[in-house]
């Protein structure tokens, strides 16, 4: 299996305090990986680092045969301005950004594929609705439709099922599994360990440092969970400089 996203001693953080500390490893092509760990463990930070939204404090992230624009990224819900007056169709059409950029027109074919994606996430007939009038679950369906339209080989999902009811979760999880079946590489930040055990072949457990990264059964063990829970969330204002090298 070929490596797609290589992490070489990556440290990511805020104000010099590491949120992800000296992470080594790789996301291989075609894998479906769950990223689990406590709040503040660096899961979202890692995705932001891969997307280039955050520059590593140390080490580097290598994308092999992959442009950053080929990655579809679904941030946490809180990052969008929910009451902005934009329709469901216009939001989903943005998934074509890779092809139309900021200036080119959407073709009728693109519009059809956006409509298909909207039906595909169970929102048929919602095209003209404003995103601001939707429920959290429906909004998440819209964002999934946008990912669907993007048709990207690599998909990063940041807590896609948080605050989403069971039926919506089941529908959207089925989409994730379909993407995996189509050979796409999917990385999802998740909190439901049962769901991870059942559906995600690989797991990265992150509590600032990687606690484990490999087959889910070997990573999601009671010993690892205990170790992850012991991570201190607090910043140490008097922390000395880290002397470990990235290599």
């Amino acid at each position: 299996m070929s490596c797609l996203i290589d992490l070489h001693g990556v440290t990511l953080g805020y104000e010099r305090h590491p949120a992800v500390h000296h992470l080594h490893g790789a996301f291989e092509a075609g894998t479906l990986t769950a990223v689990v760990g406590p709040n503040g463990g660096g899961k979202s930070t890692l995705l932001k680092g891969i997307m280039g939204l955050l520059r590593p404090l140390d080490g580097h992230i290598v994308l092999r045969g992959l442009d950053r624009r080929d990655i579809a990224y679904l941030p946490q819900q809180a990052d969008i301005v929910a009451d902005f007056p934009i329709s469901v169709l216009d939001t989903v059409l943005l998934g074509h950004w890779r092809r139309v950029g900021a200036f080119r027109a959407f073709t009728p074919k693109m519009r059809r594929s956006a409509s298909r994606a909207i039906s595909g996430v169970g929102l048929e007939g919602f095209e003209a609705r404003l995103v601001g009038t939707l429920s959290a679950g429906q909004r998440q369906r819209v964002l999934f439709a946008r990912v669907l339209v993007a048709d990207s080989p690599v998909i990063l999902l940041d807590e896609p099922f948080t605050a989403i009811d069971t039926r919506t979760t089941a529908d959207l999880l089925a989409l994730v599994l379909r993407w995996h079946g189509e050979g796409r590489t999917v990385v999802a930040v998740l909190h439901d360990h049962e769901q991870v055990r059942r559906h995600f072949p690989r797991t990265l457990m992150l509590a600032r440092e990687a606690i484990g990264w490999g087959d889910t059964a070997s990573v999601l063990t009671p010993a690892n969970l205990l170790q992850a829970r012991a991570m201190s969330e607090a910043w140490d204002d008097q922390s000395p400089l880290c002397e470990r090298s990235a290599a």
Binding site: L53, P75, F84
Partner: peptide
């Protein structure tokens, strides 16, 4: 205005 994170992600 609507989704600055998306705009940054697509460069």
């Amino acid at each position: 205005c609507f989704d600055p994170g998306f705009l940054r992600a697509v460069g």
